[in-house]
Nucleic acid binder design. Structure first.
Lengths: 247, 247
DNA sequence: GCGATCACTCTTGTATACAACAGTGATGGG
DNA sequence: CCCATCACTGTTGTATACAAGAGTGATCGC
């Protein structure tokens, strides 16, 4: 299989989406090379592809970093998703009952994850809903775009979205399915728009602006003294592939 | 400036959009390296980024090729554009007179290019209209997506779109602006949808399916014997940068 | 004459070596 | 005690070397 080339790429995305890498976190080429047992060349190529996809960025001769979107960039990502997903819903010609059934099942999984209060799985699933919605359009180009964009915003939500917002999101998903099932495309599009707006409104930008996030997490396990939206001392597991994020 | 890194990337895109590279054409790493006066490493990295953006593809140990979309892939690209641009138009809140003025000016340029019968400039400008429309949304993420997607379809149109369709396209652009100016967003979206459908319908897939396109162009300058949508013996100029395609 | 085999070439795939620079801590002067 | 300078370390940036496979043409057997 040719796809062994982008094993690293997928693995990094999976790690980000699973919360093992946090925004702003540094990735060192040689370390990754050691972990995967390959040379820097391949790691570097994978990172460059991820850069194109907006997942990582490089600071000259300093290192690679998981993107830490500014408030403005975060807004742009959410707005882009809104535009594209509205277009997607508006372009739906017929709603297959089977597709609805699948998505309903997915929303149930979301609910389960919410009650298990597993932040990573929860936010991941909430993003996956949108990807699956795009998937049933049957257009790989669109699916990839939505998938990448969702990964970006998921990365934001994972750190800055309070738990309460997750439940709300899942309910929104249910309402969107209701509208779709009823064949009310316009209403589904409207709900989608409101939904993404709500998700964006739910994130706490004040935390994001602060460049000392990592430090805060280390210094404030006891809460109270330092304001922290979602402590979640992530990024303690090592990388170790687990090529989960496939398509 | 850091952007010197992707000079190669931009240059290749420019060459493709200017018709100096045709779909299916082969790119040899070492040749490009020689032309740009750098090592294969940098060329390779640029090509990989272009691969992520859907402009080139690689066949293991055979070479890099400008993408030659299959009928199915072409359809997916057009459909993706339709979905996204419908979403874009539908999301427009207010139409600035200044923006309309700029776009009107652009459409005039299109007309000029059509009468000059310059295939490359013509098709390029027709694509640029959509990019500029996306630009005035002020969202760099969306602009990049539309830009990449437009590049892909432009690449198709350039080879397979008959001249008559270009005039029709430009008229469509005018109508879309009319609707926008009148504040009739829904109508603008509808027109956009029809427009992209028309563009797609205008391409001649029968030529595209044929893998001997290059041969045909060489053997049939006199027409008649070999069917050819747009002979346009392109790809005779060498690369030579001219970093025209900026954003 | 025709087909299969083989050697050769061309090109990518991968690793490694070295250059260039940012960041950091030590050292020395005031 | 504080600040500037300097050497050092760590990391990316770039080039080069070599491995591996695809394609091609010649050669050989029939």
């Amino acid at each position: 299989m040719v796809s062994e080339q982008d094993e690293i790429e997928q693995s990094v995305i999976a790690a980000v989406l699973a919360g093992r890498f946090s925004p702003g976190e540094r990735l060192v080429e040689s370390s990754l090379a050691g972990l995967y047992g390959v040379s820097r060349t391949r790691v570097r190529e994978a990172l460059m592809r991820l850069q194109t996809r907006g997942i990582v960025e490089v600071s000259a001769r300093r290192g690679w970093f998981i993107v830490r979107p500014s408030a403005e960039e975060a807004h742009a990502a959410y707005q882009a998703r809104k535009v594209i997903e509205i277009g997607l819903v508006m372009s739906i010609r017929q709603v297959l009952p089977d597709a609805i059934r699948q998505l309903r099942h997915h929303v149930e999984e979301e609910h389960a994850a919410i009650h298990d209060s597993n932040v990573n799985a929860r936010v991941c699933l909430l993003g996956d809903f949108h990807v699956h919605l795009a998937e049933l359009f049957g257009n790989p180009v669109l699916t990839k775009i939505v998938s990448d964009l969702t990964a970006r915003t998921t990365l934001i939500s994972m750190l800055y979205q309070p738990a309460a917002a997750a439940e709300e999101s899942s309910d929104d998903h249910g309402s969107i399915l209701d509208a779709l099932e009823a064949g009310d495309i316009a209403r589904a599009a409207q709900l989608m728009s409101e939904h993404i707006d709500r998700v964006e409104a739910g994130i706490d930008l004040s935390v994001m602006r602060d460049p000392l996030d990592g430090l805060r997490k280390i210094l404030a396990p006891g809460e109270g003294l330092v304001r922290s939206a979602a402590p979640q001392q992530a990024a303690q597991n090592s990388v170790h592939s687990t090529n989960r994020q496939t398509e």
